[in-house]
Design a binder for these strands. Structure first.
Lengths: 229, 229
DNA sequence: AAATGTATTATTGTATACAATGATACACAA
DNA sequence: TTGTGTATCATTGTATACAATAATACATTT
């Protein structure tokens, strides 16, 4: 923290991240949630004082997001929001269809007991919140399910890419939960994938995960993707 | 540049990048080429004076590479090289098999005349350098071919991921060119993909690009991947 | 000798100073 | 009015200063 010691973010996020790390997360979340819109200029000074820190951590965070493509930086001019467009979302789902399949296939061969248990627990808990219609919780559980799957693939690269993608599409994922019956259906799909993994059936896990993404795409387009981004 | 104005990198890289951008490229290349090895500590001060700049651009570059996973940063401790392991390379080729297929498929539907011409020119020139056995040039042309393909996919996300992957495997790609007859073969494969794209045959382009990756994997494992990384 | 505590040093984290670049507004001339 | 030049201001780029943290070496105690 700076001398002032007045950081807003320090209060809401645990200290396990560095100041820059927290700044990064805050700005990134605001871009992905749509609070910072495409084309909006991100002035270092403004962000710094808004977050109660100096320009340095803000700059570092912006540079990281430039690498991801979430922000465009024009030298000597400044940073502006790119974010994730409707087109990006479509492309991400095309890629995810393939990569989630690959991931589930790997997981079928490499998952350990602890991870299997964790997935089972998540699926079980999800059933509960589906009945309750607790959307915020469902979103969180979907995150957890996929994170454990990515971890279970045993591939650092796959995990990295899929985690990013999963975050990038947060808006359509949230919107898709609003679709009646969809949350029930997606958990059934998760459980089917989990079953295939438990049986160590790589091909089946791959096909099911692939289908899971295709169903999600279908569901989103029914609602009209463009409305969600 | 700093007050000293003695940057080494300023002399070898054009000024179209910012100082930080150039620092980033230099360090990244040293990691990907294997000059900076896994586990090696990257001290900000040392890098800064080595490159003739201050710590600021070095820090920003290191933070970007942390996001990519090329570098590990432990808070208050420092940065160390992660780089790309043999396992990463395998996983990347698994992912590329799928994604290069998707990319070629997109390109078949979206490529424009200029890009087609460019690909043709590259393939033609590659034939020339295959005969000459000019490995450095072949490597460069392979980069160009894939970059144009990625661009032709019309997908920012796909391009981003595939470009990174393509760079990450630079060491095995270079090694693979040493394999007798491989450079000839890979250009034939490139030309076949190009032909399918020209015919707007999405499925064919997809299958061929997929096979191109699988052949590359086979070729690499014949030589023994582990020797190359 | 082994373990523990403490002083010292090295290194990173953050803030700030200064330089350089680009944007803006306004005066002035055609 | 329109265009152009110039002064001013805002913003970024880089360097450096200072604070905080972690590593190291050494002394002290048992």
């Amino acid at each position: 923290m700076g001398k002032k010691g007045e950081s807003k973010i320090n209060q809401e996020v645990s200290d396990k991240y560095s100041l820059r790390g927290r700044v990064f997360q805050v700005i990134r979340e605001k871009i992905l949630s749509g609070e910072y819109k495409h084309g909006e200029e991100l002035k270092e000074t403004a962000l710094a004082s808004e977050l109660g820190v100096s320009r340095t951590p803000v700059r570092e965070a912006l540079r990281q997001m430039e690498l991801e493509g979430l922000v465009k930086i024009i030298p000597n001019k400044g940073a502006s929001v790119i974010g994730i467009t409707a087109e990006d979302m479509e492309d991400i789902y095309s890629m995810r269809s393939l990569l989630e399949g690959l991931c589930a296939g790997f997981a079928a061969e490499r998952i350990n007991e602890e991870q299997l248990d964790k997935l089972e627990e998540i699926a079980y808990l999800t059933d509960f919140h589906v009945k309750k219609g607790n959307l915020e919780k469902l979103y969180e559980l979907d995150n957890q399910f996929h994170e454990v799957m990515y971890e279970a693939s045993g591939s650092r690269m796959l995990k990295h890419v899929l985690s990013d993608f999963h975050h990038y599409v947060e808006r359509v994922r949230k919107a898709s939960l609003l679709s009646p019956g969809r949350s029930q259906m997606f958990n059934e799909e998760h459980k089917a994938i989990l079953e295939a993994i438990r049986e160590k059936d790589r091909g089946k896990a791959e096909r099911l995960a692939n289908a899971h993404m295709k169903n999600t795409i279908a569901n989103i387009s029914e609602q009209g993707l463009e409305k969600n981004v």
